[in-house]
Amino acid sequence: MMRGHPANSSIVARFMSSAPQSVPALVLDQVTCTFPGRGSTRAAYTAVQAASLTVHDGEFVSLVGPTGCGKSTLLNLAAGLQAPTAGTVHAFGERLRGLNGQAGYLFQADALFPWRTALDNVAIGLELRGMPRSQARERAGDWLRRVRLGAHAAKYPHEMSGGMRKRAALAQTLILEPRMLLMDEPFSALDVQTRQLMENELLELWAQERRCVLFVTHDLEEAIALSDRVVVLSAGPASRPIAHYAVDLPRPRDVQEIALHPRFVELHRAIWSALKQEVMKAHEQRDV
C-alpha cells in the first residue's frame, strides 16, 4: 500500500513500476511520534506527524530536510528504537513490535565499543548471535579486508582515524547481512575528501548486495549522488515527507563525477527549490 502525495504520485508510480517488488522492505504508515515535554515548558513535542514512507527492497532512499525536522526520528521508528505514538511500521510485510531485526543501523556518532579492537568490534554481532568466537573473528577478518582495514585489525577505536572508524562501523553492521540498512548522517563528521571516499566505498559495497538503504543526510548533493530516490521532509515540528524525486542517474556512480552530470544539476535545482522553502520555514520558526 502506497500513500503517496498527489503532487508526487506520478514519480512514485513510475518508480514502482520500474521496480516490481512483492513486499516493500519498509512501510511507515501515517506514523506520528510525540515526545513528552521536558524542562520548564513541559510542552509535548511532535517530531513527525502522519508521515508515510515506503522503501522497496534494493532501493537506496535518502531523506533530506532542514535541521530538526525529525529525520533521525523517522530512522529510529524504522529501526524500532522508537515506537510510534500513532500509525504502524511494517518491515518486509511484518508489523514492527520492538526492534527491527532485519535492519542494520549506522549511527551519526561513533558507536564502536572502545574496549574492543577493530576486529572484535566487527565480530561482536556474530558473537551476540552465539557464533563461536574463533569463527566470528575469522569472518570479521574477511570483512575488515573488504572495508580495507585488514592491516588495522588489532587497533582500538581511539587509535583509528575518523574514516577508519566509519569503515569499521560499516563492517560491524554489514557482517550481519541485514536486509535493510539505516544510516543517520554517517559521514557528516568526516572531512570532505574522506567523506567522498567513503561514499564511493559505500556505493561499491551496496552494489554488491543491493540491500535497501534508508539514508538520512542534510547534504543534498550527497543524497542525489547516492540514491535512487530523494525524499524531502517538511520543516519540523510535525514534519512529514512532502516530495519524492526519483534519481534517474546511471550507475555505477562516482560521487565526484556524477555531480558534473547535467541531469544531476537539474535534479539538484528541482529538489533544492522544494527544500529551500522548508529550510526558510525552519529558520523563521527558530527566529520567532
Binding site: 528504537l81 558507536a111 565499543f113 551476540l128
Partner: peptide, 11 residues
C-alpha cells in the same frame, strides 16, 4: 549510542 548500537546488533 553505544547501547542502541549493541541492541541493533542483537544484544
Amino acid at each position: 549510542v553505544l547501547l542502541n548500537n549493541a541492541r541493533m546488533l542483537g544484544a
